[in-house]
């Protein structure tokens, strides 16, 4: 099993996050043992949330990464974050809406 290229060359802070993404779509939470397959966008947003990025920062990264408009990035990010929150997959501070 191979980790995504994004997992390589992480900073110490990034290495502390429990989310590991394989081939950009398969998400494994090393803390809970939960794993699932997601869209690339969903996995990207989840990992960004665990890296501690704010919603606005995630929207910018989504727009840049997937080449979509700011409005699409905003809408997709909101939708994914809501879904991830329902599934109890977000970090504590984001679950609390901070």
């Amino acid at each position: 099993m191979k980790s995504s290229a994004r997992s390589a060359g992480k900073t110490p802070a990034e290495r502390d996050i429990p989310i590991q993404v394989f081939r950009e779509r398969f998400v494994f939470n090393r803390r809970t043992g939960a794993f699932f397959t997601s869209s690339r966008e969903g996995a990207f947003i989840l990992e960004a949330a665990w890296r501690g990025l704010s919603r606005e920062e995630i929207e910018k990264e989504v727009a840049l990464k997937f080449g979509v408009s700011a409005a699409v990035a905003m809408s997709d990010t909101e939708r994914f974050l809501l879904r991830l929150k329902e599934m109890h997959l977000l970090p504590e501070q984001m679950r609390a809406g901070k």
């Binding site: 429990p18 090393r30 803390r31 809970t32 043992g33 794993f35």
Partner: peptide, 8 residues
């Protein structure tokens, strides 16, 4: 079956 976790 089981998967190793690191849960402080």
């Amino acid at each position: 079956g089981g998967v190793v976790i690191d849960n402080p």
